[in-house]
Amino acid sequence: MTRFFCSGVRRLTLVLVAVAGFAGNAALADEPSVLVTTIPVTRGALKHTITAYGHIAPGAGAARTLTTFYEAVVTAIDARPGMAVRKGQVIARIAAAAATRAAYAQAVAARDGALRILAHTRALLAQHLATRIQLAQAEQAAQAARATLDALKREGADRATAAVEAPFAGIVTAISTAPGAALQPGTAIATVVRRAALVAVVGVDPAAARRLAAGQPASVSVFGGAVLRGRIDLVSGEVDPRTGLVDATVGLGAAQALIGGMVRARIDTGTVRGVIVPRDAALPAEGREVIWQIRDGHAVRVIVHVLASAHGESIVAGPVDPSLPVVVAGNAQLQPGIAVRVQAEPGY
Score class of each variant (00 low, 15 high):
Val250Trp: 04
Ala29Cys: 00
Gly225Ile: 10
Ala281Gln: 09
His311Lys: 01
Gly8Tyr: 11
Arg210Ala: 14
Ala95Asn: 02
Phe22Lys: 01
Ala213Ile: 12
Val85Asn: 08
Leu35Gly: 06
Ala102Asp: 14
Leu14His: 11
Val263Arg: 04
Ile338His: 08
Gly318Glu: 05
Leu124Tyr: 08
Gly24His: 03
Ile294Trp: 10
Leu307Ser: 10
Pro284Lys: 14
Gly21Lys: 01
Asp30Ser: 05
Ala166Val: 03
His128Leu: 11
Gly237Trp: 02
Gly21Asp: 03
Gln89Ile: 07
Pro322Gly: 03
Ile91His: 08
Val342Asn: 07
Val340Arg: 11
Ser219Lys: 10
Leu125Gly: 01
Ala145Gln: 06
Ile303Gln: 11
Gln143Pro: 00
His128Thr: 13
Arg93Lys: 14
Ala126Ser: 10
Leu28Asp: 11
Val235Gly: 01
Gln216Val: 05
Arg43Ile: 03
Leu28Gly: 00
Pro241Asn: 08
Thr271Trp: 00
Leu245Gly: 00
Arg295Thr: 01
Arg111Cys: 09
Arg11Thr: 03
Ala166Gln: 04
Gly224Ala: 05
Ala92Cys: 09
Gly186Glu: 10
Ala282Cys: 02
Ala332Asp: 13
Leu283Phe: 12
Ala145Asp: 07
Glu289Val: 00
Leu234Trp: 03
Ala123Gly: 03
Leu125Glu: 11
Val304Tyr: 11
Leu66Met: 07
Gly54Pro: 05
Phe4Leu: 13
Arg295Trp: 09
Leu14Lys: 14
Ile276Cys: 01
Trp292Lys: 04
Pro217Asn: 06
Ala213Trp: 08
Ala207Asn: 02
Gly287Arg: 06
Thr51Glu: 14
Val85Gln: 04
Gly180Gln: 07
Val17Phe: 14
Leu135Met: 12
Pro185Ile: 13
Ser309Asn: 02
Gly253Gln: 08
Leu14Arg: 15
His128Tyr: 03
Gln333Phe: 15
Asp321Met: 02
Glu155His: 13
Arg3Val: 09
Val202Thr: 06
Leu198Arg: 04
Asp321Cys: 01
Val306Leu: 01
Asp158Pro: 07
Arg341Glu: 09
Asp78Phe: 01
Thr173Glu: 06
Ala107Met: 13
Val275Asp: 15
Ala265Arg: 08
Gly8Thr: 07
Leu183Tyr: 09
Ala162Cys: 08
Ala197Glu: 14
Thr51Ile: 12
Ala142Lys: 04
Arg132Asp: 15
Ala29Gly: 00
Phe22Leu: 14
Val34Phe: 07
Pro206Ser: 07
Met262Ala: 12
Ala63Ile: 10
Arg264Ile: 00
Thr177Glu: 12
Ala200Tyr: 07
Leu35Thr: 02
Ala209Gly: 06
Ala196Asp: 15
Leu258Ser: 15
Ala141Met: 09
Val302Lys: 00
Glu289Arg: 12
Pro217Thr: 03
Thr75Gly: 07
Ala110Trp: 13
Ala99Met: 02
Ile315Met: 02
